[in-house]
Amino acid sequence: MPQLLRYLCDITAQRDRARLEKHVVRTLYDFLGVQQVSIHRLYMVQDKPLTGITTWADASGLHHVDDDLCWPKGTIPLAEHPQLQQIYQDGIEKTETATQGRLVTALPIQRGEQLFGFVEIIHEQALQAQQIETLRDLTTIYSNCIALLDYSEIDSLTGLLNRKTFDEKLIKILSQMNAHGDASRHDHNGVPSRREGHYGGDKQHWLAVIDIDFFKRVNDNFGHLMGDEILLLVATLMKRSFRGEDKLFRFGGEEFVVLLKPVKLEDALRVFERFRQTIADYHFPQVGQVTISIGFTYITAQDTPSQVIDAADEALYYAKTHGRNQVQNYEQLIENGGLQRKDNKSGDVELF
């Protein structure tokens, strides 16, 4: 028991999701004495569930795949994993099946009211009652720790990720891209490179800055409570419009940020244009029509956080000063002469 308490102290001390997950898997593996322990994350794409293993422990050691950059290798539709699919559909607490002479036990991992993923145990002998109790308790502790991390990372008004979390996520993405040898933003002539993306082809990570047009008028004419309602509705429409693996942030005030996982330029344009149109078509109570402007840019390993944000801000500023209610891409604006590259960017752009 004292050893288990030391493991629990280590688990509850973690403030990083990846380290937390690794500690939970290691603890389960050590205390259950099984062949393998795995965490399967749940991803939603257009309301279709996928699952992939992010952390596992077996006789070869402890392994982790960070899913901030991309889904884990081997991510599959949840329907191809019947045991996990049963938990997802029926909401059952535990399943145990025999596969190729092995027993497989799986439990859901909750994230508040939502299903976050699954813990899967591969073992030769049936789990004893005390082992099952340990498995359930540690899974519950993991869920509680996730909830606490969510509380510190979530914007209280909109339910989106907050500015502090954005800074951490962007730095993490840049450091991981550096570790994988991503190319520079510029070619030898200082022109935006049309180089292949980190994942091959021309897929890129994208950062978009989204700003509600004339938001000050909403506050002035309808009051700050209605202004908050508009922010909440925009955030709700964001959650419906983007993929589950895309990161959505409230950057501050009426400004939002999206970190889009790797897609081609034309796909990124289509995603952002579709969201712009969704907002423009939505009838906001009392206010009527609200529009947004979007500026976006791709991310490379050679960027600093300020460079990425500045590039997206410049594209946003161009959209704001050329009619609003539009989507602009920084690289295209540089290429067609709409913007000129600046050696020293000035930081935040004043939009009003």
Rank of each mutant, 00 (worst) to 15 (best):
R195S: 15
K247C: 09
T134F: 15
T27D: 09
Q332G: 08
S306G: 07
L84S: 08
L138W: 07
T158K: 02
P72Y: 00
Q130C: 02
P108T: 00
R270L: 12
A79S: 14
V104F: 05
L231E: 03
W56C: 09
F166Y: 13
K216H: 06
I122W: 07
P72Q: 01
C145T: 04
D343F: 03
I87A: 07
Q277I: 03
K320Q: 12
D303M: 08
K22S: 13
R185E: 11
G181A: 04
H188D: 11
R17N: 08
R102T: 08
G112D: 02
D182P: 10
Y88I: 05
D10H: 12
V45R: 14
Q46D: 14
L339V: 00
I309G: 11
I334W: 04
L260D: 01
E120R: 14
A268F: 04
G295W: 01
N219Q: 03
V271M: 15
L78A: 05
I292K: 12
G295H: 03
R217E: 07
F352I: 08
T99N: 12
H63W: 00
F272M: 10
F242I: 00
E133D: 13
G61C: 08
F242C: 06
K22P: 09
R15Q: 11
Y88A: 08
T95E: 08
L233N: 13
H322C: 03
Q131M: 02
A59F: 06
Q289H: 12
G337D: 00
A311H: 14
N325D: 15
T105L: 02
G253K: 00
E153T: 03
N344L: 11
G227P: 13
E168P: 01
D310R: 07
I109R: 10
Y142P: 13
S346W: 01
L161I: 00
F352C: 07
A235P: 12
I109K: 07
I92G: 07
E96G: 09
N329Y: 10
D155K: 01
L4A: 10
E314P: 05
K172S: 14
R270D: 11
I109P: 08
S175D: 12
L351V: 12
N178W: 01
I76N: 05
Q110G: 09
E273P: 11
I109V: 14
N219F: 01
L4M: 09
G190Y: 03
R195K: 14
Q131R: 07
K48N: 09
K320E: 07
R276I: 00
L233T: 14
I132C: 13
T55A: 09
E93L: 11
F31L: 15
S241Y: 00
L351T: 10
L138N: 11
I173T: 05
Y88F: 15
L207F: 04
F242N: 06
N219A: 06
G288I: 00
P2K: 10
H123L: 01
K164H: 13
R17K: 13
E21S: 15
D267G: 10
L50F: 15
I210G: 02
K22L: 10
F296V: 05
D228H: 06
F214S: 04
R19M: 12
T99Q: 15
D182A: 12
L333T: 00
N189R: 12
Q46W: 02
F296Q: 03
G323N: 05
D58N: 15
Q340A: 06
R163T: 00
I173A: 10
K22Q: 15
Q110I: 04
Q114F: 06
L233P: 06
F242E: 02
R111E: 09
Y142D: 08
T297Y: 03
N329M: 06
Q3R: 13
K345P: 11
G117A: 02
